[in-house]
């Protein structure tokens, strides 16, 4: 075991996306977490990548549903039920 834990920086970088998305199994989550606690460079990379994702989500989600869209769609469904349509 190295001072940075069982995972090297490369091992950690390879798993960073899955770690950020909580898609690793528990054992790997723990090993990545241990590495990030001990490696300032990887921790900085992790914070940057996580922040890019969070901020892109925040920007992309700034959307309002057009006021009458729900009404139009419900009306369309009603028309779709009519015989012969």
């Amino acid at each position: 075991m190295t001072p940075l834990g069982p995972f090297t920086c490369e091992d950690t970088a390879r798993r960073l996306d899955d770690y950020l998305d909580r898609e690793l199994d528990q054992a790997d989550m723990q090993l990545v977490r241990e590495h990030l606690e001990r490696c300032a460079a990887c921790a900085q990379e992790f914070r940057f990548e996580g922040s890019v994702i969070d901020n892109v989500k925040r920007k992309l989600r700034q959307i309002d549903l057009p006021e009458d869209l729900t009404t139009r769609i419900i009306a369309e469904l009603e028309r779709g039920k009519a015989p012969g349509t």
């Binding site: 900085q44 940057f48 901020n55 892109v56």
Partner: peptide
Amino acid sequence: LRAASAANGVPFQGDDPASLLIDRIGTERV
């Protein structure tokens, strides 16, 4: 983005440099 920021003199350190960069880029460009 982080490496590009570093290589091009864009601040990439501090509390939350990615947030500052994405804010500057803006919603439409994202």
